[in-house]
Computed example of a mutant assay.
Amino acid sequence: MRQAAIWTTIGLAAPTLAAADPGENWQGGYGHMMWGGGYGMFGGLMMILFWGIIIALIVFAVKWFTDNQGGGNRGKRDALEILRERFASGEIDEEEFDRRRKALEK
């Protein structure tokens, strides 16, 4: 049973491998597109540059979307809210609270 599975796999893979054989004169056509023919070394470097730009755009898009979630005011507290917290905790008295609140509302 195991040998039959191996021979079946080889039998199915052989035509694929034969079709992938470049033949004797594989550089007579287009050649190897990355380094040997086509655009040569320039083509390979451009491919690396292209994929680098695509990956960078994806990273920047994900960063931008995660930074802009939460109504745009995430992590930032209003000055009046901080003043109210300080008054509620007893750090400042009512006179100081009123004076600072009026200054903030100008």
Rank of each mutant, 00 (worst) to 15 (best):
G90K: 05
N25S: 10
G31A: 08
M34H: 07
W7I: 15
Y39A: 14
A61I: 12
D98R: 10
I58A: 09
D78H: 14
I92D: 01
F87V: 06
F50H: 09
G36M: 10
T9N: 03
R77P: 05
A79L: 13
I92R: 04
A61Q: 08
M33W: 12
T16I: 01
W26I: 10
W7R: 10
R77C: 07
L83S: 11
E95C: 02
A5H: 03
G52T: 05
W64I: 13
E96A: 13
R77G: 08
I48Y: 03
N25W: 04
V62C: 07
R99F: 07
G37W: 04
G70K: 10
M41E: 15
M1S: 10
W7E: 06
D21A: 07
N68S: 15
G31W: 02
K106I: 06
R2N: 09
E94C: 03
G70V: 09
N68I: 13
K76Y: 13
N68F: 13
F65C: 14
E105R: 14
I92H: 02
G70I: 10
G38K: 11
A103R: 08
N73I: 14
G43D: 08
P15D: 00
G71M: 06
A88Y: 05
E94K: 15
T66K: 14
L80R: 12
W51L: 09
L57F: 12
